[in-house]
Nucleic acid binder design. Structure first.
Length: 696
DNA sequence: TTTTGAAGTCTCTCC
DNA sequence: GACTTCAAAA
């Protein structure tokens, strides 16, 4: 929440000097038009690098100069990174007023509003948020309760069920249609699946749990169901601005309709060529439907690129020109010069890694900061080899995307203890911690939870359970610890941050031993738990700590190489998804191998393949001055090469596209490794000579 | 009957 | 490296 408005000071003092042209002087005519546009719905179609975010930020500034209170402006984005970036840029442009602009991802804003207004719509304010894995686990519990245990192999797995459910919520498509289109072999279970979803919904309600989709769904529903609530929620904001609109789905459009139904002051910016979130129910046609959904909308198009050199744009334009459907125009720039992007052929992964590291060092020596360079890849795990090499060579790096800190099993374990004491009805967390206990398996865990449910999830119910002999010790230890947790939290006088930290310490008094038993590399994992405690110190309460971890998790486990603090110079490694909206002087795209990029899972579906193409376009358009695409010819362990040709160059780099690039062969001075000094003889020359004759 | 250990199977993207 | 499946042990 923003601070209270500082009423003791005249507003004018807080704002930079009022100047009509200050905000538009640095903009081109199209951008300026969007910035100074009035109060009706506005759609800005903006290609990559055309100053989309800049335009949005300037529009926010213009609104504030026009007299709109900053806290009555809502700025919605799609990823956490984009949200943080926008708010900090707004602050730089308009000074202290920028801090008061409300902003965040759709999910985080939904969360804030539901804590505030949910109670009026029958949602208790102390709900817990489940992340995706939690939601899948709850789906599994529902699945098991319906009798579809492990033997029922033909019934969809929990991940599929959750995917279907989420898809249904986000796209508003009927379940039978989703089944028909995506998993027709499960059509026979339509009735059971619908019943299971009903049970899942009921379980969430009974356990006071909310999943990611609910944060959006309840937000939309509470406005639609109650005119009074709608006017209160929507009345908070006079202007709503949305970034990356091409990645929103129908549900988010519903939210925006609710938020802007009264005043229609909605600005959205987006680029259909950069739509890469179809897997979350987004469809780039939503952006084209905007004028229909918000009648009277004005459209402004930005096509001048300020980021990249012309050769980089030539390549990017060529790649996206192969798209089946597209609406935005080719990008152009007035920037002169620039080298053709490199197509680097490496023998294998090791050589790919070596090339990237060598080239990064070379550029670094010529004056490019590490932070101005990025290595991009399709999926988080593809940077593993590179990470090891960077760590070996003491090159600091920062990894974006991929496995999150809180997705690590041991972190989830610790959080499960906290969540059970926060919300005794949290079945998912109960199951998780019970399964950790020696002597307790699936059957005992379910039986214990059933008993606790009979006792209406009374916090003491667990203590009074009778455990099977095998699990008696574990049961007693856990009961003591949970009582301790509840005792600690009710103690008055603890400073806020220390409270969460001491909870974690209490959990670790019994969990550390389990961790050492259960997982390999316990030292690194224990270090993660230390870090978890450090992070927890920043939160005023356990509730806010747990909510923040679900919505805004710290991005990386640890600074693997650098060691020093956050603002140090470090090379960026990122998934393409996490790189969206960012730019670097030099960009390396690795694993440009067909089956990796595009992903082999996407090649059978034309729509998914198109999304991969847009993803490649997003990757290429991140580069300002230098761009290299690396392609290892030999991929280890391509087991599935029988049904798919893996070791080919990405299909997006066809002959014509390659014409806009220059081939680079990796020079390998150390191609033949220097022979190691030999201490004792390892071969027998005489024996070799004998063999030579015997062969015949 | 329930738990646990070992071998085997994949591996996405984000809130 | 995480998760599932299968078989052995308690």
């Amino acid at each position: 929440m923003a601070d209270e408005p500082r009423l003791y000071r005249p507003r004018e003092r807080e704002l930079p000097p009022r100047d009509e042209h200050r905000l538009t002087a640095s903009l081109n005519p199209d951008q300026a038009r969007a910035v100074t546009f009035g109060d009706a719905p506005l759609l800005v179609i903006a290609g990559a690098g055309t100053g989309k975010t800049r335009t949005l930020i300037h529009r926010v500034a213009a609104l504030i100069e026009r007299g709109v209170a900053p806290e009555r402006v809502l700025l919605l984005t799609f990823t956490r990174r984009a949200a943080a970036e926008m708010l900090s840029r707004a602050e730089r442009l308009v000074g202290s007023a920028g801090v008061r602009v409300h902003g965040g991802t759709f999910h985080s804003v939904g969360h804030r509003l539901l804590r505030q207004f949910g109670a009026a719509a029958g949602l208790p304010a102390d709900f817990s948020i489940m992340d995706q894995a939690d939601a899948e686990d709850l789906m599994q519990l529902a699945r098991g309760a319906m009798g579809f245990t492990k033997t029922a192999k033909r019934f969809p797995k929990k991940e599929t069920l959750h995917w279907l459910y989420s898809r249904h919520i986000n796209t508003e498509l009927p379940i039978d249609e989703l089944l028909h289109r995506d998993v027709p072999h499960f059509l026979e279970y339509e009735v059971q699946i619908a019943a299971l979803f009903a049970d899942y919904t009921l379980r969430k309600q009974e356990r006071n749990l909310v999943d990611y989709d609910d944060l959006l769904l309840f937000w939309a529903m509470m406005m639609e169901a109650s005119p009074e609530l709608q006017s209160r929620v929507a009345g908070l904001y006079e202007h709503v601005l949305v970034d990356e609109y091409q990645d929103t789905n129908l549900l988010q459009a519903r939210i925006l309709r609710g938020m802007c139904s009264k005043h229609g002051r909605l600005t959205v910016v987006g680029d259909d060529a950069q739509s890469i979130y179809a897997f979350r129910g987004a469809h780039f046609r939503n952006i084209l439907d905007f004028p229909r959904q918000f009648p009277g909308a004005t459209m402004v198009t930005l096509a001048q690129n300020y980021r990249s050199t012309q050769p980089i744009l030539d390549l990017s334009n060529m790649v996206i020109s192969r798209a089946e459907e597209r609406f935005s125009k080719d990008l152009w720039t007035s920037r002169e010069g620039g080298e053709k992007p490199w197509l680097v052929t490496a023998r294998d992964e090791a050589q790919q890694t070596r090339f990237v590291v060598d080239r990064v060092l070379q550029l670094h020596e010529s004056g490019v900061e590490l932070r101005d360079m990025a290595v991009l890849f399709r999926a988080g795990y593809m940077s593993a080899d590179l990470e090891i090499e960077l760590a070996n060579r003491k090159i600091p790096f920062e990894k974006w995307g991929g496995l999150k800190f809180l997705e690590a099993a041991h972190v989830k374990d610790v959080l499960a203890f906290l969540r059970v004491s926060e919300n005794p009805r949290d079945e998912v967390s109960w199951y998780r911690i019970l399964m950790l206990m020696p002597g307790i398996g699936d059957t005992t865990a379910r039986a214990m939870m059933a008993t606790m449910q009979e006792r209406a999830w009374d916090p003491d119910a667990f203590t009074h359970l009778i455990a099977p002999p095998r699990a008696r010790d574990a049961h007693r230890a856990l009961a003591v610890m949970l009582r301790q947790l509840r005792g600690l939290t009710s103690k008055v006088g603890d400073t806020a941050g220390a409270k969460v930290a001491s909870d974690i310490a209490a959990v670790r008094s019994i969990y550390d031993a389990i961790l050492k038993e259960k997982y390999d590399r316990p030292d690194a994992r224990l270090a993660d738990l230390d870090q978890l405690r450090t992070i927890s110190a920043g939160y005023p309460s356990r509730t806010s700590f747990l909510a923040a971890l679900a919505l805004d998790p710290p991005s990386n486990t640890q600074d693997l190489a650098g060691g020093s603090e956050s603002e140090s110079d470090a090379l960026i490694l990122s998934t393409v998804h996490s790189a969206k909206g960012k730019e670097w002087k030099a960009v390396f795209v690795i694993w440009a191998v067909d089956g990796w990029f595009p992903s082999s899972r996407a090649v059978d579906d034309p729509d998914e393949l198109e999304e991969e193409r847009r993803l490649m376009y997003v990757a290429l358009t991140r580069a300002k001055d230098e761009l290299a695409i690396v392609y290892p010819m030999q991929v280890y362990g391509s087991r599935r090469s029988a049904d798919y040709s893996f070791d080919q160059l990405s299909r997006f780099l066809d002959r014509g596209v390659r014409g806009t690039m220059q081939r680079v062969v990796v020079e390998e001075p150390g191609d033949v490794p220097a022979p190691a000094p030999i201490e004792s003889p390892t071969i027998d020359l005489r024996a070799l000579m004998r063999g030579r004759f015997e062969k015949k």
